[in-house]
Design a protein around this nucleic acid. Sequence first.
DNA 1: CAAAACTAATCAAACGATTGATTAAGACAA
DNA 2: TTGTCTTAATCAATCGTTTGATTAGTTTTG
Lengths: 202, 202
Amino acid sequence: MDKRTSILRAAEKLFCELGYEGTSTRSIAREAGANMAMINYYFGSKEGVFVEIMTERIKAFGAQLTVIDEDRISPMEKLKKVIEGYAERIFLNTSFHKMMHRELSLAQRPEMYEKIKGAISTNLEVFEHIVTAGIESGDFRPVDVRMLIATIMGTISNVASSPGKVTGNTLDISNPKDRDILKERLINHLKELAQTFLEPKK
Amino acid sequence: MDKRTSILRAAEKLFCELGYEGTSTRSIAREAGANMAMINYYFGSKEGVFVEIMTERIKAFGAQLTVIDEDRISPMEKLKKVIEGYAERIFLNTSFHKMMHRELSLAQRPEMYEKIKGAISTNLEVFEHIVTAGIESGDFRPVDVRMLIATIMGTISNVASSPGKVTGNTLDISNPKDRDILKERLINHLKELAQTFLEPKK
DNA sequence: CAAAACTAATCAAACGATTGATTAAGACAA
DNA sequence: TTGTCTTAATCAATCGTTTGATTAGTTTTG
């Protein structure tokens, strides 16, 4: 792994654990086994590292969404695939997801947030398109699309961020097997919710 | 307003906007119209200020715990009342709600974490009891209760934290009137969702 | 081919600014 | 006068960033 990449991975780890402000460039360099100056050499600034990490991740998710949207399956199957994909992705790295929401909920560092929000809203549009197309084709009944998206993403986000609220701390989330059980339960719930909520009334 | 109080209010405002790490004691003093030394004089440290703010809020939160559950109305009406109450409460002070989740997700400051979690889980139990009772009485069809709660709270939290994702930035959230429109839209969506999802199949 | 020129990568050291905290001295009410 | 409040000045530590020098590898040139 080259220095550039190891800086990215080290920074990601520390940002997740300690937050953006709580992570110093010195600690990033130490964790990456690199010199401090390399951070500015490759990314211009600490903020540049953060933006790079975020856009990297968001683009990967966007690519996944687009692939699903272009699949030749029914709107409901698409939606279920999106739910699965989103849940899988977030459960694969919950601490990153928490970090993203944490740092985005701050009103400061405007240019950085504009960039990231732009990438997110591109993804939202694909999501929205899937549901809207389903409504237009008559597969779904008409609903508040953006609110439905907020529900799906909000539920996944909520369960991933505080799994204890759901399991009542009977499961050990640090255990991959237990985490998988919770993830499947979440996916099932959301699929059923989507099915019930979107089914056209007869 | 005395200096002590104005420091608390100034710190709360800045913590909400900039996060804990992003807020300096100097900026708190400036915002409060007080000298820097007053912060350490009254609260011992920056963290002392933070702890004071949180305990203050949590106490107020616990005092206003709903008695909806004891109302003599149908389970569905109870649930809708809970949805309304929860949305109202969070929309009343979104920035504080965001800050709470932000600092909570960092897992630093463990004593605070436990305190807040305790307050939240008390509310969860009321919530859960309402839905469970509705299922037992046959008003609701059997569903994954905890997941449903995660959906409701997750949706509200999601919309409150990033309203732009829903409105597409066509509304000005800092405008109380626009914020009210969004809140009503959210409540309507969730009521409809609950109705559709929980309705027993014939 | 070999010398010269250039390039990207890396480093230790230092920059000025800012951090949270403390001090000693003054102001003011009781 | 005593004890509470308030101040400006200052502390050491740490922050993100920049610097100038050095290395190793590649290109260009004579």
